[in-house]
Amino acid sequence: MNAPATNPADLSALSDAELRKLENKIARKHSGMFPWGIVTWAFGNLAVWLALWPLVILEVIPLWLSFIVATVNIALVYLPTHDAQHHIIGRPGQKLYWLNELVGHATSWVMVYPYEVLRVTHMDHHRHTNDPDLDVDITSHADNAWSAIWKTIRQRQPNGKRSGDYLRCLDRHGRQDLILLAIGYRLGFYAILIALAWNGLALEAFFLWWLPYQIAITYILFFLSWAPHSPGMGQGRYRDTKNWRSKVGNILSMGMQYHVVHHLHPYIPLMRTPAAYREMKPILEARGVQLEM
């Protein structure tokens, strides 16, 4: 087991620059390795979801069981694409950049978003976290958990603000091409659902994709967006994200208890954020980060 790199008693004497240097040293220690776990997760999860379709159509497994598996699959789709958005699997110019992009593209379409749209908007979320005008995820903010769940459902209605925030973000970045691509994905999704439905596979389309997608998006936004950034969180490097204790544990909350580490050092692979957090904790305390564990 690694010894903690920091001793709380020593930190009060350190300057801002020295604290930052120490924090960066820990971050570097937990980054740069090939995240084989997330790559296996990406393709394994996708393979299981794709396999459900023939298994259900050929009546090898019942629809109710495949609905449960599909919901888990789609809830698990986002995190690999999230690591790819941050170029954690391979950076531009590196040998494994193609794999990074393959993971991003291969997983994001299941959530009916082009990978590049997720990347551009997510980088803006990092740049403007909790900014009421510029954070694309600001609509996830809510005073309590039930309100957060209801808001994510409301935001997916045709008049929801969230999709408009995403389109405005793409427009700000001059990526009108991505606006068209995002609309194309949405229309394509509807076309596939309708084609399946009118060919005798309406319940399969509903229980393997549409309903699991709705449940998964609610789950993902709850744990990735609401829990670490709301309620009452402010703006600024050490104020916009908190460490929090999940009632369902770290795995079921998709590792988001340690999301603060991701916002401070987005190049650390998801699976290394708990270890990085444990080493960084005294520094984060010295910085005044809201820590619950």
């Binding site: 439905a197 319940l203 549409w210």
Partner: peptide
Amino acid sequence: LLWLLPLIFGVGFLAPVIAEG
């Protein structure tokens, strides 16, 4: 087309889902 999408979804997808259900 985007404005009409809910109606298209209702007729194109929800209708056969309800019928099959």
